[in-house]
Design a protein around this nucleic acid. Structure first.
Lengths: 346, 346
DNA sequence: TTTCGTCCTTGAAACGATTCATGGCCACTC
DNA sequence: GAGTGGCCATGAATCGTTTCAAGGACGAAA
């Protein structure tokens, strides 16, 4: 048997199949790609040869000649974050029926890592990439697009010219949360927020303020903002302790947390301090992670259409790839929804 | 500029670079792959041409000629499950320094989907695949291996000849949980388990029974098993309600749940019934998901070395690929650890 | 000056599939 | 029987890279 020098048998090629079936390579290719243009008898002979040899097409050779490849690359900020896995699922669901495949990777917010994966995808000749840009990586991405590779920004709300993007309206999401608390009659509201280096935090603060102003309140009087360095449970717990130190007469009666993990910590602090939720303190989170409804006090949270987000991003990309002329770029902004649970309306 | 018929400019090839730099294609290839064999002056000229043209290697042509590709495919059961995302992270971390890349996908326990991805990976010429086999898919996987593609089974404990695999000892993990409860003095223990169609459930029951027997207890007397259809919070909550219906004098004083989501539901039921944890009922989960320590009652749980699992699987694969002769197959079984938190030892 | 030897560079062959102009074969029509 | 057209099969050219035998240039040694 033919070998490749390393002792392993060589994969059968289209030539081997042709020889075995007693036809030309062109005919084998026709069986694979245009079976109706081949006489049934010939077709069956070729099929038999394919099965006997366990022939598997070589995607590289195929792509080299055809110039195209049905693959899309995606780079998310953090693959361990449920938000992004749900987005990835949405992307896959859009690609599968078109027989596209997904190459998925995680940049971990590292622009260098992101650049490495972008180059890799480009070398592989993907039709396009879906990227959640990390800070300062936009230039690399735009250069990629200029070289003719489809680009859709994922979870981006920044206004960039000539790039398609999908995102969720964080300003509106935060506003929804605050409107809900105002509706419930809360007049002193706390906001546990993260640093300004994270876009989401900036946008959500804007939403909080906008909602208060729209309701005729003075943000300075109603709002107590606590800033935490990282968006995890421990930070949320610490922040809530600060709030609980405030004299009961001036203490906020509701807290909006910039994400669910922070809210989880806040709830824990409340539990330990024996403050009843939602009677003595209402809590709203953001992201509506899978466990939000499973908590001992199910958490009211702002839900984002993650699956749709991914689906739409992939859809935009495929459309761009399908278009012949220079693509028209679209920016899609989804609206979040508030899911009311026990932590605010017990 | 050269075009490809669809109006888009053609990507510059190594030939374009060679022409621009006034050298042969062989020299350009040398600059890319063996830079030290090229005179500095020539090298710089070529580098300049590469940058001016924005040349990017064509991975397909490269692979076609070289016959190999530094890519590994992985198929997990459910990409939305934190267990698998952490495993994926481990895989990536092992591959990155060797400049391998990962193609990741999710079979959703569908053998057909799994087969489709396997074939795709094979067409792309991956060096190997990491698979969590879904039911009855082993044959496809073995055929793949026979065709010379590296295979490592992920999270598999079944004994299959001639295939490498990595897994975590579920029997031992469950035993750890029960030993812990016995140490705390519990003499009536509940076990909320899933269906026998899931291997983990079978293994974990075996561990529960083994631990009781080893401690000289009669499982029939100590154990109350409740079976749920799916491993989520609602099922866990319902199961705990069943347990709470038992007369207090005979009711178990501790519950071991087959995974953390079930435990979450159980905790919720306890909270609503105002049963104090851990005093009136201790609870142990399994998986140690990220939110286990964030709960209002931090959850005691069995921790699995997910990252290491993925890392090791990838490591085995790379070793097999590196070996020249027929690979020696290894089966690695990791040991889980119990993480004690408030829900058992408040 | 000649002869080596070293060090770079060259250019054609090869990888495996797809494409397409070419031509063979056959049936049918006039 | 010649002409026409439809249907299939053919096989060489092609994609962009890597590889490697062969050749060229140049300096050092005799």
């Amino acid at each position: 048997m033919a070998t490749r020098g390393n002792g392993r048998p060589r994969r059968p090629s289209i030539t081997d199949v042709a020889r075995r079936a007693g036809v030309s390579v062109g005919t084998v290719s026709n069986v694979l790609n245009r079976p109706d243009q081949v006489t049934p008898a010939t077709r069956e002979r070729v099929q038999a040869a394919i099965e006997e040899l366990n022939f598997v097409r070589n995607a590289s050779a195929r792509q080299l000649r055809a110039g195209t490849i049905r693959t899309v690359g995606a780079i998310v900020l953090d693959i361990a974050n449920p938000f992004f896995t749900e987005v990835a699922r949405g992307i896959e669901d859009r690609l599968a029926p078109d027989e596209y495949t997904l190459m998925l990777s995680s940049s971990d917010q590292d622009p260098e890592r992101e650049a490495r994966y972008l180059r890799l995808y480009e070398e592989h000749g993907v039709q396009g990439v879906l990227v959640t840009p990390s800070q300062g990586s936009l230039e690399t991405i735009l250069a990629l697009r200029d070289r003719g590779i489809g680009v859709v920004l994922l979870d981006a709300t920044t206004e960039v010219e000539d790039v398609s993007s999908v995102g969720v309206d964080d300003v509106r999401g935060a506003a929804l949360a605050v409107e809900h608390l105002l509706d419930l009659g809360h007049e002193r509201i706390a906001f546990i927020n993260g640093p300004d280096s994270i876009r989401q935090c900036v946008d959500r603060r804007a939403g909080v303020v906008a909602a208060l102003v729209a309701a005729g309140r003075d943000p300075g009087a109603v709002l107590t903002e606590v800033t935490v360095a990282s968006l995890n449970a421990d930070a949320g717990e610490k922040a809530m302790h600060e709030l609980l130190a405030i004299d009961a007469s001036r203490r906020p009666t509701a807290t909006f947390c910039v994400n669910d993990f922070t809210a989880l910590g806040a709830l824990r602090a409340l539990r330990w301090a024996d403050v009843r939720v939602p009677d003595a303190m209402a809590v709203v989170g953001y992201d509506d992670v899978a466990i939000a409804p499973m908590l001992t006090v199910p958490l009211t949270s702002v839900h984002q259409p993650t699956h749709t987000l991914g689906w739409t991003a992939a859809d935009l990309l495929l459309r761009e790839a399908g278009a012949d002329g220079p693509a028209e770029h679209q920016r899609v902004l989804f609206q979040p929804e508030l899911v009311v649970r026990t932590s605010t309306a017990g």
